[in-house]
Structure formats: structure tokens, C-alpha cells
Amino acid sequence: MRISNQGNWGDAPLGLEGLALRFAQAISHTGLNQSEFARTLGISAGFVSDVVRGQKKPGAEFLYAVRTTFGISVDWLLTGEGNLTGNSGIDLDLLRTVRLQIAVARSAIIDANPTAKALLLLIRDGRLQEAAAEPDIRAFLDLVAPTDPDAELAIELYNGQLWTTDAGAQRRNLLAAAMAHFEARKPIDKVAALARSSGSTIQINISPSQRNAGRDYHEG
């Protein structure tokens, strides 16, 4: 399972093709520049530069030193699987599937819902696609599907902080990310927003004449 929690680096290709990009991110994660990183490991800055540019591949001793010195996951460096520090993230898609299956099972067993019972049989036999387009089934799934956007946000934020082991930094980053999430979704005064973008006066063309709308416009 690939967990892409590395900011702008999440699109690095899997496998050795993306090694140079992931290695550059690993250096950035340490807070050191390439020369400082190399000096800490006791290797030449030129070799580090060559790895970042994709001109050389690191050997076992080098990777071992990166892992033991900085806690960078060797598996992640070489393959792109997992995350930078090797901690396990949460597969949000899998979690959604599990929660939906729980909802269907509850409806079938506790509520004795016939549609839910039919769905359980289709899922068990691997034939769900046969009935996926049925309006009744889609309507039922829309009805029972668990919706908890705050829980999904919590998982996304959790996955996004696996790269750091600094508890204080994690708390600050999580709070900032949560605030930014809700600030972006906060209702806005659209008229005020337009006024800010255009200045104190908005020119509105009303054929055949033209009027000014804004704080200095008064209807006669």
C-alpha cells in the first residue's frame, strides 16, 4: 500500500525511478543542506549531489547509515511504498469500504432489510457488479453509507504527520491544518469579497446607461 503524505513530493514514481526525488525529500526532512547531510554521514557532498540528481545509486552501507542516523525508511527510499519514516498510515479507501460493509451487515441482520440481505449475498459471491446499476441498490447504499467528514479529516491529518516524530511539531501542524481546512470552508460574504477584489467602487454596465455601484452609489 502506498501512502503519499509527502507534500509536493507525493507524485514521485514508485521504484528506483523515483529514488532521487525521495532522497531529496529525505534531506529536506532532516533540515540540513546537502553538505551538512553528507558531513553528518561522513561521506562526500559530491556523492550526495549525484544521488539527488539521479546520476548514482546508493549502496547498502550508505542506506544503513541514512536509516540509523536519520530514521529514514530504506523501503520507502527504494520503492516509494509506505512513508518516509516507515510508520504505518491508514488506507482511507479501505476504511470507507469496511465502514460501508458494516452498515450493510447491520441493516441485513439487525433490521432484516431485504435489500441489505441481497447485497450481502452479492458481496459474498463476488457478483456485486451485476447489480451495481440498480437504482434501488444505489438508493439503499446512499441511505446507509456512514458519513463522518470530521473522522475522515482526522485520518488525513494523521497520515500527513507520520513523517515527523516531534510531538510538539505534530500538534502545531495538526492544529494549523485543521484550522486551514475549516477556514477554507467558512461561509463568506460574497458581496464583500467582490468589493475587496475590485476596490471601493464596482463598475456595472447597465445598457443603455452606466451606473456606479458601491459605497458612493445612492439610488435616486
Results as ranks from 00 to 15, higher is better:
residue 161 Q to E: 15
residue 161 Q to M: 11
residue 119 L to I: 10
residue 204 I to E: 09
residue 218 H to S: 08
residue 216 D to H: 11
residue 44 S to K: 06
residue 207 S to G: 09
residue 55 Q to K: 14
residue 6 Q to Y: 14
residue 176 A to M: 05
residue 30 T to S: 11
residue 201 T to N: 04
residue 220 G to N: 11
residue 30 T to Q: 07
residue 170 Q to Y: 13
residue 15 G to V: 11
residue 102 I to K: 15
residue 172 R to P: 06
residue 14 L to K: 12
residue 66 V to G: 03
residue 106 R to P: 12
residue 43 I to Y: 06
residue 119 L to C: 07
residue 218 H to K: 14
residue 130 E to Q: 06
residue 48 V to M: 01
residue 145 A to Y: 12
residue 181 H to C: 05
residue 218 H to F: 14
residue 142 D to F: 00
residue 98 V to C: 04
residue 87 N to A: 14
residue 2 R to Q: 12
residue 33 N to E: 02
residue 8 N to P: 12
residue 104 V to I: 10
residue 33 N to A: 01
residue 148 D to S: 04
residue 151 A to Y: 09
residue 57 K to A: 12
residue 186 K to S: 14
residue 61 E to W: 09
residue 87 N to K: 15
residue 139 A to G: 06
residue 68 T to D: 15
residue 167 A to W: 13
residue 119 L to D: 09
residue 211 R to I: 11
residue 101 Q to S: 09
residue 130 E to C: 02
residue 217 Y to F: 09
residue 20 A to K: 05
residue 43 I to K: 03
residue 219 E to W: 13
residue 40 T to A: 02
residue 47 F to P: 01
residue 38 A to M: 03
residue 195 A to Y: 10
residue 169 A to Y: 02
residue 31 G to E: 04
residue 136 D to I: 14
residue 155 I to Q: 05
residue 32 L to E: 03
residue 155 I to T: 10
residue 155 I to W: 04
residue 213 A to W: 15
residue 114 P to W: 06
residue 212 N to H: 15
residue 132 A to V: 07
residue 135 P to T: 03
residue 146 P to D: 02
residue 59 G to S: 07
